[in-house]
Design a binder for these strands. Structure first.
Lengths: 187, 187
DNA sequence: ACCTGAACACCGTTCAAGT
DNA sequence: ACCTGAACACCGTTCAAGT
């Protein structure tokens, strides 16, 4: 005898994302997600294969939000200003969403689905690739982008880990970084 | 009636470190560590306050090893070659010890004890600070070091997370990065 | 003094049973 | 078709009891 569904994949992913933002990845347990959507843990397995699959769905959600966030920071005019604005937006987003940042940048083992964007220039981080390309020229886009993204994610990761413990102005260090990087990747 | 100790903090930390290297941080459970040192889980609480304390001891061990590893890579001669050698040693170590790298660079919440080295120039990453200082001059050492370390840790973190999925030569991207950074921090 | 089994409150996951 | 309680094998941690 059929029964109306009492929840949905969307509701589950949203609940998981909310818990991630509030209390971190370890707090995203099947039981807590289930109770947030008004159901018991075993019922979740009707919608997601297992916890890993749920975490991957949440990661895709996070990546889309991050992409939109850095995309909005770009004006598409001067690439140097643009790149700095993108970096600042990235950092601000990460500091506001430490759990989500940690998930996407350092807790995704092995492969996770979000296939690499077919065309990087229009994909999730298109704004960043376009700004970098304008500075580095077409031959070095990939390597220059990797330099910038590695630095930005490493910087924020260390900041969130509390690894900057030798004093100094962290905001200034970030500004110094983007300034030097713009010079470094320019032709 | 006294009883001879059957294990020690050292044995416990070493066992934890071995499990970390073999199977990652999540596998470092009190039960597994206990069984590795030939004891039951509750006995571990005679030596370490709780699992977090054990993880912090392991992290300190990891940091010392990493410091020795990058220290050995430096010759103290030309700072550019030195910095590249240090970066290469860091990356090689991280790729060989992904669990240890992840623990130290992205899984340490809040504070963890290893107090900041009193004198950075002679501390854990002294070789790196000295090479950077020779290139950047004394005024920019801190910010320049943060640029280099953020980049290196972010790069390796992304590499381990499988985040370089757009093709290209990853080794070449790392070499490109250190080359551009040396230029970027030089006066 | 050190170690232990038993217990408690949690996990993720499966599955037969209910509607 | 969907949801559930009960069960299983795991966690971390505490504690009274053993030696």
């Amino acid at each position: 005898m059929p029964t109306p569904a009492r929840t949905s994949v969307d509701a589950i992913v949203n609940a998981g994302r909310a818990i991630l933002d509030a209390d971190g990845l370890d707090a995203v347990s099947m039981q807590r997600v289930a109770s947030a959507v008004g159901v018991r843990a075993p019922s979740l397995y009707k919608r997601v294969r297992d916890r890993d699959a749920l975490v991957r769905l949440i990661a895709a959600d996070v990546l889309a939000e991050l992409g939109a966030c850095v995309g909005a920071a770009s004006t598409g005019e001067d690439p140097s200003t643009d790149l700095a604005a993108i970096a600042d937006a990235f950092r601000a987003w990460a500091l506001q969403h430490p759990g989500a940042f940690g998930l996407v940048f350092s807790r995704l083992p092995d492969a996770w689905q979000p296939a690499p964007d077919a065309d990087p220039m229009t994909g999730t981080f298109g704004a960043l690739f376009r700004a970098v390309a304008a500075l580095s020229g077409p031959d070095d886009v990939l390597e220059a982008s990797r330099l910038v993204v590695a630095w930005a994610s490493g910087f924020v990761g260390m900041e969130l880990a509390g690894a900057f413990r030798m004093g100094g102005d962290v905001d200034a260090a970030f500004a110094y970084g983007i300034d030097r990087l713009v010079g470094a990747i320019a032709r």
